[in-house]
Design a protein around this nucleic acid. Structure first.
Lengths: 151, 151
DNA sequence: CAACTACATTTGTACATACAAATTTTGTAA
DNA sequence: TTACAAAATTTGTATGTACAAATGTAGTTG
């Protein structure tokens, strides 16, 4: 569906504006589908991302800075996201003994299990949209996006 | 900058996952730049979008349904967005006489003036990223996104 | 070591988002 | 005409986001 139909515009839209709208709208479609999956697991997208970052640490704890710099939405409030994960026993939080300003966040067994359960569903979702494009088209799309956002 | 560097991943990422990340991240970059512009005008992105939808009505009022269906993020709370715009005298809200369940929202002169002031800045921003790509590349990007998100 | 500055995180506040429940009005059918 | 269902919007609640200010800790310099 063309972006003009989606926002029900009757006047023509410049290619620059269309590109912005298309990126915004496509992100929305993906995020909505993500949300649908995570909702049944009582996780928000950002909570899920934090868990994935922690799993990527392979046992090593991560402090708040590290989590923050790896998140996609840069200014999510990491403290409160971790608070929520703590309440569900998906992570533990300890003061770092070498530098008491830092916090060490580690994913728990329960957190890992939850991710393991989610993995196939998330992967299926990621694949779902991609099947509309050939591998060359996918590569092309990624290259164009990377080139586009460079300032 | 490649998406792998951005999220500081050391393990390889599938093309499907990379595509999702690239779309999410690019949208974030655009939205942040948008926010920077609107912040100085004390508008949020969604408030701005509502104003633009109202301007598109060319004098005709729009009811809440109409506004909602034209917004990019489908479940923004239109009532509260309009509340905020009312407080700033950028719109007026009246009960529709033919169907008293409906509300008629109209943009004010002040709202139109604000948009007129914003227009060139927003356009410059939309153009900024687009200059990284040729017209064919832009067309290509738009087509790929439209094809990608089709379910 | 006292005073500063920088660092890491938390807290406060205002606003936005998601979704369900409530409210008001309209149309319709017994 | 009362009762009921549907439509349009609002309200409530929990959560998330943006950003500034506050807190607590570490390192540095006079």
């Amino acid at each position: 569906m063309k972006i003009e139909e989606i926002i029900k515009s009757n006047s023509p839209i410049s290619i620059e504006k269309r590109t912005v709208l298309n990126i915004m709208f496509t992100q929305n479609v993906i995020a909505d589908a993500f949300n649908d999956i995570l909702k049944s697991f009582d996780l928000s997208v950002e909570q899920f991302n934090v868990l994935r970052i922690l799993r990527g640490q392979k046992g090593k704890p991560a402090n708040m800075c590290v989590i923050q710099e790896r998140m996609i939405a840069k200014t999510s409030n990491t403290t409160r996201l971790v608070d929520k994960l703590l309440l569900k026993d998906l992570v533990i939080r300890e003061v770092c003994e070498e530098n008491r300003r830092k916090m060490e966040i580690t994913i728990t067994e329960k957190g890992l299990k939850l991710l393991a359960e989610l993995d196939p569903k998330i992967e299926a979702h990621e694949t779902l949209f991609s099947t509309n494009l050939s591998s060359e088209e996918l590569e092309n799309l990624n290259n164009l996006l990377e080139k586009y956002r460079t300032i």
